[in-house]
Computed example of a mutant assay.
Amino acid sequence: MSSDRTDLALMAETLAKSPDYRVLRRLVPRTEFSFCDGQAMKTGILLDVETTGLNTTQDEVIELAMVKFTYLPDDRIAAITDLFSAFNEPSIPIPEEITELTGITDEMVSGHLIDPDAVASFISDAVLVVAHNANFDRKFAERYWPQFERKPWACSATEVEWRKHGFDGSRLGYLLAGVGLFHQAHRAIDDCRALIEILSADVQKLNRSAFAVLLERARRKTIRIWAEQSPFERKRSFAAVLISA
């Protein structure tokens, strides 16, 4: 068996050297990414939720997965330090299309409840939460577990210009292929493991990790303004003032 694997690895290396082939290797989860050498490190969380639908105010979480990791002063990911994965039984049957997408069935979540104290403890030392569609995941997370409201968030899907850096798009499968890997699972914890591999990889021509590029953008100050129940013309005039400021 080991001989067969060695032969396959040699074939893959040979193909990879040719411009006519692109070789993808199955993602093998790992925990170590960069040598820390005693440097002070910060803690981050990668988060993914599976839900009964796309309505962030009415649909329900059926799975929460988190990967806790450390990162260095130069924003390189150092290591995975802990994992969290739990099911939650919703008040309604899981829609068929959601089961087809996620593989999660009513039987799998039956009787399960995500412990809010366990979630709070897991994220207590994190200085950053990263999700690949933070606009979606964050709303569910903050609705279920208010501790997330006090955490800074970053979106790995929108806060990195992936196409500019040579990727085919921002979908997780495209990004994973861009770093020479593939995975066939669609469970939340598997997607978190895939995302940390992507963020730990160097971006072409920058000699910096994708995570460092993400943090550079995420650290910029932003302002969120609501103009509810205002006439459209007033909204447009206000937007023009902001743009020219």
Rank of each mutant, 00 (worst) to 15 (best):
G103M: 12
S170M: 03
L175Q: 01
I243R: 15
L101S: 05
T99A: 14
R236Y: 08
R220D: 04
E60R: 00
T57N: 07
E50K: 05
R26M: 14
A154D: 01
A78C: 10
P152V: 08
E50Q: 11
E97M: 12
T158H: 07
H186M: 08
L128Q: 10
G178T: 00
K205W: 13
Q184I: 03
A9D: 15
Q39F: 07
N88P: 03
P73E: 02
R26L: 14
A86V: 00
A141Y: 06
I45W: 03
L24E: 06
S237Y: 12
L215Q: 09
D202G: 06
R5S: 15
G178A: 03
L46W: 09
D117A: 11
K221M: 07
L27D: 01
V119E: 05
I77R: 02
F140G: 08
A154Q: 02
L175V: 00
S121R: 13
D202A: 14
R171S: 14
A194W: 04
V109R: 03
S124H: 10
T158D: 07
M1P: 02
I98M: 12
E216C: 02
I223T: 14
S244K: 13
W162E: 01
L195A: 05
T43G: 03
V160C: 02
T105V: 10
G44N: 02
Q39A: 13
